[in-house]
């Protein structure tokens, strides 16, 4: 099987699954088809899409790359930036502060992986607990209110059916990252080091520096996601990022990125995010309990990976 065909094949698989889901809904829950539901899917997609993009970059860069701390970063950035506002940070500085803080937390992950040589799974499992625990400890578990009201339209408003944050954050960053991956030397370096690190090093690619930047980027995207939650909910919640690490990983894998690194594209990830959120929304709509939704994502992951194995065998 050709390596690039993987993301394309995956987008096709997702499209078929999506049609199947729509078919089921048309039969059993036709009320699903209303504009408000579409708006809600996009509203819920932004946070997952942003952290999944960071996750995808880290996984693409190889070296057993994984960022289990994405959710914890979202929580801690939300808390820290709101604590900063309460301590006197001017409100207009909240957006850049949140994104910058995310970058710093991502830098922490990157340094653990590239400088100390920790396995990414272990390093980011550590910071998952560290960042997540800190978010809870700083607030005693309660929310931090006081988000400047001028941010609310960004978190809640829409242009037509599309939320502002989806337009302003998700679309530009996905297009930008897709362009970087396919049209710049940096994108080539990421694919080369993700697939065969040794060859990349021998070719003179600064593998460690690129990898560090991938973790920083994942942090920056988590910072953007945190900002969206602040603008949406009007307060910082210390557990807002819970489960994002696993959901983002599921989106990345379902979206066609190879867990071994080096292969995959970001639009497959976006398609997977939209599908996962649609599935969850559809289950919500059909009164299926939230607890089942988590299991459904697991099933989806296994199903898609099984389809992959079948296709690989057919083509081999």
């Amino acid at each position: 099987m050709k390596l690039t065909s993987l993301p394309k094949a995956r987008i096709l698989v997702l499209f078929v699954l999506w049609l199947a889901l729509l078919g089921l809904l048309a039969m059993f829950a036709p009320a699903f088809f209303q504009p408000a539901v579409l708006r809600s899917i996009l509203q819920f997609s932004t946070v997952l899409a942003l952290v999944s993009l960071g996750q995808a970059l880290v996984v693409l860069g190889g070296g057993a790359g994984i960022d289990l701390a994405v959710g914890a970063m979202v929580s801690l950035v939300a808390i820290l930036s709101m604590l900063a506002v309460r301590a006197g940070l001017p409100g207009f500085l909240l957006p850049p502060a949140a994104i910058l803080l995310g970058g710093l937390l991502g830098l922490g992950n990157g340094l653990l992986v590239t400088r100390l040589g920790l396995l990414p799974l272990i390093a980011t499992l550590g910071t998952l607990f560290l960042y997540g625990g800190l978010a809870l400890a700083l607030t005693g578990g309660g929310p931090v209110p006081g988000v400047p009201a001028w941010l609310f339209p960004f978190g809640r408003g829409t242009l037509g059916l599309v939320p502002w944050h989806f337009l302003a954050f998700v679309l530009p960053v996905f297009v930008l990252v897709a362009l970087i991956l396919s049209q710049t030397a940096w994108g080539r370096w990421v694919r080369a080091m993700g697939f065969r690190e040794n060859a990349a090093r021998l070719a003179g690619i600064p593998v460690s520096r690129v990898r560090l930047l991938l973790y920083v980027t994942s942090g920056l995207l988590a910072g953007m996601a945190a900002l969206v939650t602040l603008a949406w909910f009007g307060s910082a919640r210390p557990n807002i990022g819970q489960n994002l690490e696993l959901e983002s990983l599921a989106a990345v894998l379902v979206g066609g990125v190879s867990i071994l690194g080096g292969a995959g594209g970001v639009f497959g990830v976006l398609a997977a995010v939209l599908f996962i959120v649609s599935l969850k929304t559809a289950m919500q709509f059909s009164n299926i309990a939230t607890t089942w939704q988590v299991g459904a994502i697991g099933l989806l992951l296994i199903l898609v990976l099984l389809i992959d194995r079948r296709t690989v065998r057919w083509n081999a």
Partner: peptide, 16 residues
């Protein structure tokens, strides 16, 4: 020192 997931042109210029 070649990367199998890249094509000929990409490999010839990899890193440069």
């Amino acid at each position: 020192a070649l990367s199998e997931n890249l094509n000929v042109v990409e490999n010839v210029f990899l890193g440069r």
